[in-house]
Computed example of a mutant assay.
Amino acid sequence: MTEDEARERILTAAEQLYYRKGYAAVGMDELRQVAGVSLRRLYSLFPAKTDIVAAVLARKHAQWESGLAEAVTEAGGDPRARLLAVYGYLENWFCADDFRGCAFINAFGELGGTNPEVAEIVRAHKASFQRYMADLVAETGAPAALAAQLSILAEGAQSTAAISADPAVAVQARGAAEVLIDAAFARS
């Protein structure tokens, strides 16, 4: 097995285990077993658990950004539809059988208070989403404050859907987003 193959197996196993069981609950030995690599190989590629967590979160960030951008692009050129596509993306995600909430919120809740590196990764991911929403709002000509409102609404929907196990939260968030968007357009 090449170094790249071993790295991929470790990250795939870590992503699945961390998302299903939690970051703190998964030890290096369990990760090694599920990935099918030796402990020596695991530590040679990732000297510390934080290195694995950081790599997993980098993958999750890339998946989030590409999935969200695809959903917004598929909405076409209508600015209102593009903003609302964010909530359609959330609804699809919340309906997934393995939905367990936002991996970043989960990581922050478990590790953010004791691991500054993980806390910074999570903050950077959330800031990136806020910038993305700000760019979408700027394209519409609506007031900039709308971006923060829509971002907070999406973040709240992620937490609520994870806790309630109810994907309908995305539909409710979309309804609230429609009210905010319509009010912003009426003012601009």
Rank of each mutant, 00 (worst) to 15 (best):
R7Y: 04
Y19Q: 02
A14T: 04
E155A: 15
A170R: 07
G112D: 05
Q172K: 12
A148M: 11
A119H: 08
I181R: 12
D182E: 14
G22Y: 08
V72M: 09
P167V: 03
A177W: 11
S151L: 12
A145C: 00
A14P: 02
H125F: 13
V137H: 11
L83R: 01
Q149M: 15
V37F: 03
L31W: 02
V72R: 11
V56N: 01
A62K: 10
L150W: 12
E110T: 07
E5W: 09
S159L: 15
Q63A: 15
Q63S: 08
F46M: 01
D166L: 11
A62H: 10
M1Y: 09
A162T: 05
F94I: 02
A62Y: 05
E74Q: 13
L180H: 06
A13Q: 08
Q16C: 05
G156Y: 06
A24G: 00
T73A: 15
Q130N: 08
G156D: 07
A186H: 06
R20P: 00
K21F: 04
V169F: 00
A184N: 07
N106S: 08
D51A: 00
G113R: 01
A162F: 06
A62P: 01
E3G: 09
A157H: 13
G112F: 08
L11S: 04
V72N: 07
Y43F: 12
I10M: 01
N115V: 12
R7T: 00
A147T: 10
V171I: 11
E65R: 15
P47E: 03
G36P: 02
F185V: 05
G113W: 06
V56Q: 06
A54W: 08
R7G: 10
E139Y: 11
Q33D: 15
R32K: 13
I152D: 06
H61P: 00
A144D: 08
S188R: 15
A170M: 10
N92L: 15
K21V: 00
D78T: 05
V169M: 01
K60M: 12
R123V: 08
L42E: 08
T140D: 06
E65Y: 10
E70H: 11
G22A: 05
D182P: 00
Y18L: 06
R174W: 13
V169W: 03
Q33E: 15
A165M: 15
H125D: 08
Q158R: 13
L83W: 00
A173D: 06
L31C: 04
